[in-house]
Design a protein around this nucleic acid. Structure first.
Length: 127
DNA sequence: GTTGAGCGTT
């Protein structure tokens, strides 16, 4: 019987570094970026491992410089996993990269007020 | 001319 649950072995969701990694998605968190790294630089670097659909680097509104981290969106989660496994820990523009799967956060998702339309429980004051 | 772990609209 060499039949093993190969599904769990080939399944990336069960072969992370232990179990301290977030769920897999096509969004990658790229940290440890150099201060001179641009979105096009990251996209050009990650486009070799997959189809990059979106690249977002966080800039500082005060200094206008990069915060040193960004996000890379891939067309497929498999490409993102490949790019992560390939670029994670590697040096980029003189600084080691810290790549990780991004959290399922979206703009507006952090603060959302569920308003019930059928709530007549004294919640409607000036509707 | 600076700094260095992180998780999103600068």
């Amino acid at each position: 019987m060499f039949i093993i649950r190969r599904s769990l072995l080939i399944n990336p969701a069960f072969s992370w570094r232990g179990f301290c990694s977030p769920p897999i998605n096509n969004k990658l968190f790229v940290g440890g970026l150099s201060w001179s790294v641009d979105e096009k630089s990251l996209k050009d670097a990650f486009s070799s491992y997959g189809e990059v659909t979106e690249v977002r680097i966080m800039y500082d509104k005060d200094t206008g410089r990069t915060r040193g981290f960004g996000f890379v969106h891939f067309s497929k989660a498999d490409e993102a996993q490949c790019a992560k496994d390939a670029m994670d820990g590697k040096a980029f523009l003189g600084r080691p990269l810290r790549i990780s799967f991004a959290l399922d956060k979206v703009r507006g998702a952090s603060v959302v007020v569920p308003r019930f339309s059928s709530v007549g429980d004294a919640a409607e004051r000036d509707n």
